[in-house]
Amino acid sequence: MSSAHFLSLSPAGVYCAAGDFFIDPLRPVARALITHGHSDHARAGHGHVLATRETLAIMAIRLGQGFAGRIQAIDYGDKLRLGSIDVSFHPAGHVIGSAQIRMADGKTIVVASGDYKREADPTCAGFEPITCDVFITEATFGLPVFRHSRTADEIARLLASQQLFPDRAHLVGAYALGKAQRVIALLRGAGYDRPIYLHGAMEKLCAFYERQGVELGDLLPVAANDRAKLAGEIVICPPGALQDLWSRKFPDPVAAFASGWMRVRARARQRGVELPLVISDHADWDGLTQTIVETRCEKVLVTHGEADALVHWARGRGLAAEPLHLLGYGDEEADSVPAESEA
């Protein structure tokens, strides 16, 4: 990554020597800039954390109050100087509080995207393309088979299934941070006004979103109700809970899963999903390529995901492009059962 100017790669992740900070470090460091609150990006134990107010609040909810030595909040668009680097955070459209990080040393502008998407999301600020020289992008869905721009249709399919099977509970697997709230907000936007039931792992973050002014309507905890009585209802739960004993108590449950991975049939089948809902909080292929064009960058660095295809595409357009093959990112969205599902 020598040609990424003031950034370098280390085992802890992307490092800026001129500002002495890491971005989304994988292990404890002295100073960390955190793009968003997902557990693969926001880890505990750093000396100092700089992030948006929402991201800091999410980290406190998930990791406990003492998750870092010191914390500092930054608003979207505000500039801060770290060493010789001007740093600012800009909306990434991924989840509430998610940010791209813009870094400039007077000669070169580098933007680290964090995770992002281009589709509208009623629960968070929309992505803003930032002009830069070097764009460091994710590529979770960096293959042209991934196109998930028909989210409204997916919500319609869920509602159609729920009407078709009034005697069955619809369990929608969704990641607790971001996806769950987005699915709920989309259901509300589609006019669904019945109570929506929540697995215990969803409650804290839904309450947090509501405190931030995101309206989610009537939410009821599942625990307080008899699961067997929830025929015809929609229940939001962590993806891992779909296969848990927990889900068996519902009346003839329909296992739905809201994820970009549902675009590939085998992925849905491997997880025993009957109603795959292609709803993603990551940019799809068109979103990734459109964004690279809009940043007008000369160089693309791909942190994680399906880097090879995106690098090939970028080089085909005459851009310099390299895969970084960073490990440790993407797990929350990809395969693992997030920790809170055990709650």
Partner: peptide, 22 residues
């Protein structure tokens, strides 16, 4: 693009589905 097709096929693991998606 043949390279993008091959990478996609490798990921999806099913020719029919890869082509249907692409």
């Amino acid at each position: 693009d043949p390279v993008l097709f091959e990478l996609s096929y490798d990921f999806v693991g099913d020719l029919s589905e890869t082509v249907a998606l692409l």
